[in-house]
């Protein structure tokens, strides 16, 4: 069996907002169960505002007010040992960053310090994680690596605003993989780029993963990208993972009505019928509907859906889903 690298148990992370004395709770990550494996690309998909970025923040243990992790655990499997990240001190966690878990941001536009040269940014990352003499070494490796990624060596002397979007995103990918982390978290790494550049950047990520044999957790709402690169996909809706399966299964036999909408909204080659998008609008995470959060928009809604949240069950060994329809089918089959 494949080794697990990251687990979450009943993870709940809410934004607790105090707007002039009135409490508002945004349930951005709500009872999420994940088991992410070594050497896989795990895709997370879902509409805007469903909590994808927040989930990534909790996975990377950057939980800062107003976000609060109320329940559950995030567990890193470091050299076979299970480490609950909430038990780590600031300095221990700081060391894990970039060495165990790193991050490729959505837009590279504003993530690099605008007033220093790229080589200084590299130095900042290296000197914060590598000690003494090996700093020089690492920096030399970094330069070689940049060349390997097809970037001109001179960019080290450039300022971020002097690079094109695609170049900058390559630079952040190079930065994220510099210390060979076990997990790379990528939040919409290509959305800010134009289509052709997008493909190159995705390919780069995929190549690096093949080489390092590590794990990428990839968020994007572009199902096409998922189809191309992800090994497994988790579908997120209103702060919950509602379905999870290997990529082919998600596309060939989606069980959750929401997933079906997502798949159907993909353009198909030669098909000119208008794409069907999800009806209605996503619920407010501060004021969720009762029962299944999808029920106001679900064409197959049952009575029970309005009252009770369906359990997250295994429809098959590698296929989990949270929908009352699925449980019914199972019941009939049994």
């Amino acid at each position: 069996m494949d080794k697990i690298i990251l687990t979450t148990r009943q993870l709940k992370a809410f934004y607790l907002l105090d707007i002039h004395g009135r409490q508002k709770v945004v349930k951005a990550v709500n009872e999420v169960e994940l088991e992410i494996l070594e050497n896989e690309i795990y895709g997370i998909a879902g509409e805007s505002g469903c909590g994808k970025s927040t989930l990534l923040k909790t996975l990377a243990a950057v939980v800062e007010p107003p976000l609060r992790q109320l329940e559950g655990k995030v567990i890193y499997h470091i050299n076979g040992e299970e480490v609950d990240v909430s038990t780590l001190g600031d300095e221990e966690m700081r060391r894990l960053r970039w060495e165990f878990v790193s991050y490729v941001p959505q837009g590279s536009m504003n993530v690099l310090n605008p007033v220093v040269k790229l080589k200084d940014t590299y130095h900042d990352f290296i000197s914060s994680h590598v000690k003494g003499k090996s700093q020089e070494e690492t920096f030399r490796m970094a330069k070689a690596y940049i060349a390997e990624l097809g970037l001109p060596a001179e960019i080290m002397g450039a300022y971020p605003h002097q690079l094109s979007g695609g170049m900058r995103q390559r630079v952040t990918i190079a930065l994220a993989t510099l210390l060979r982390p076990k997990i790379i978290i990528a939040d919409e790494p290509t959305t800010a780029l134009d289509v052709i550049v997008q493909r190159g950047v995705m390919q780069l990520l995929k190549d690096i993963q093949q080489k390092l044999q590590n794990t990428i957790i990839l968020v994007t709402h572009d199902m096409g990208v998922h189809a191309n690169v992800a090994d497994r996909i988790g579908i997120m809706y209103a702060g919950k993972i509602v379905e999870e399966a290997p990529t082919e299964k998600i596309f060939s036999q989606p069980l959750h009505p929401y997933t079906q909408f997502l798949i159907n909204s993909l353009p198909k080659f030669g098909d000119k019928t208008p794409r069907q998008s999800v009806p209605g609008s996503p619920p407010s995470l501060a004021d969720l509907p009762t029962g299944c959060p999808f029920h106001p928009r679900c064409p197959q809604v049952l009575d029970i859906c309005k009252e009770q949240m369906p359990a997250y069950i295994a429809a098959a060994a590698d296929h989990k889903v949270a929908c009352w329809l699925v449980e019914e089918e199972n019941g009939q089959a049994a």
């Binding site: 966690m93 991050y103 993530v111 900042d124 914060s128």
Partner: peptide, 23 residues
């Protein structure tokens, strides 16, 4: 973004304060 990113990247706080924030 660039401050959050630096924190995400585990850059030492002193460095973040001086080179990112104050600068």
């Amino acid at each position: 973004d660039f401050v959050q990113y630096a924190r995400f990247g585990g850059i030492k706080e002193r460095r973040i304060v001086s080179r990112y924030v104050i600068r």
